[in-house]
Computed example of a mutant assay.
Amino acid sequence: MTNPAPQKPKGNPARTALICVGVAFGMLGASFAAVPLYDLFCKVTGFGGTPMVGTAGAGKILDRTMSVRFDANVAPGLGWKFEAESPEIKVKVGATQTVFYKMTNRSDRTVTGVATYNVAPDKAAAYFVKIQCFCFTEHTLKPGESFEAPVVFYIDPEIADNRELDGVHAITLSYTYFASKAGQPVAEDKAGSVKDDVGNSKL
């Protein structure tokens, strides 16, 4: 007796292809959504050296004093001078402070820049609260033009409840200015020209 030949499982190739395309688009959409969600997570938790964001003062000032250092960096190719009015100040924990940064375009062209930031040490970022900041906001300067922008902040008094941070006496707020396109930092290639997100040279 002859056994019947095994039959191939029935399937719909078009339907399978459609599902694969849907999964691919779903993964792509999730990757774009992950960027703002990750940014929000960092701002809420202080993860990765990202300062917290607040809308008002701490409401309580402690006797504890800490140093806050202000670091200012400029990415190659931007042509700006960038500095804080003071490299370091002493602050009372919980007291609201304002420090100004000054940016000057020293190049011979109009340039748009955007600043990113982080706080060191990372474990102190959850207690560094920014009320006002110029970061992630595009600024366009003509040749020789300058402007000043404030950073308003305080150190959360809850830092005193974290015994692991008893030995932390200084916090560094570090900014880096990059050339910008559509509010996003633009990378520089090895030849020294700034490229946009599709690889076209801008300088």
Results as ranks from 00 to 15, higher is better:
Glu145Leu: 03
Gln184Trp: 11
Val194Arg: 12
Ser180Thr: 07
Glu148Lys: 12
Glu85Ser: 12
Ile155Pro: 00
Gly11Pro: 04
Asn118Met: 03
Ser193Tyr: 01
Gly11Ile: 11
Ser174Asn: 06
Glu138Pro: 03
Ala17Arg: 09
Leu40Glu: 13
Gln132Tyr: 04
Val198Gln: 03
Leu78Asn: 08
Met66His: 05
Ile61Val: 00
Tyr127Arg: 13
Ala14Tyr: 03
Arg15Val: 10
Tyr127Asp: 10
Gly94Ala: 14
Phe25Lys: 04
Pro157His: 00
Lys181His: 05
Pro87Trp: 09
Asp71Trp: 10
Ala182Pro: 07
Asp189Gln: 00
Leu165His: 03
Met52His: 10
Ala120Gly: 08
Thr96Tyr: 09
Thr172His: 04
Val198Ala: 02
Gly94Glu: 14
Gln97Val: 10
Lys123Cys: 08
Phe147Asn: 01
Phe32Asp: 08
His169Leu: 15
Asp166Ser: 15
Gly57Tyr: 05
Ala120Asn: 14
Asp196Ile: 00
Cys42Trp: 02
His139Cys: 11
Glu85Arg: 14
Trp80Tyr: 09
Ile19His: 10
Cys42Val: 06
Ser201Trp: 04
Asn118Trp: 07
Val35Ala: 06
Met103Thr: 04
Asn200Ala: 02
Gly167Ala: 06
Phe147Trp: 02
Phe70Tyr: 08
Pro87Arg: 04
Val99Ile: 03
Asn73Phe: 11
Thr65Tyr: 05
Lys195His: 11
Thr50Cys: 05
Ser67Thr: 11
Ser67Glu: 14
Pro13Phe: 03
Ser201Ala: 07
Gln184His: 06
Val53Ile: 12
Gly54Phe: 13
Thr112Gln: 09
Glu83Phe: 10
Gln97Trp: 06
Ala24Asp: 02
Ile159Asn: 04
Met66Val: 10
Val53His: 14
Ser146Gly: 01
Pro157Cys: 02
Ala187Cys: 02
Ala34His: 03
Arg109Tyr: 06
Arg106Glu: 12
Gly29Thr: 01
Pro51Ile: 12
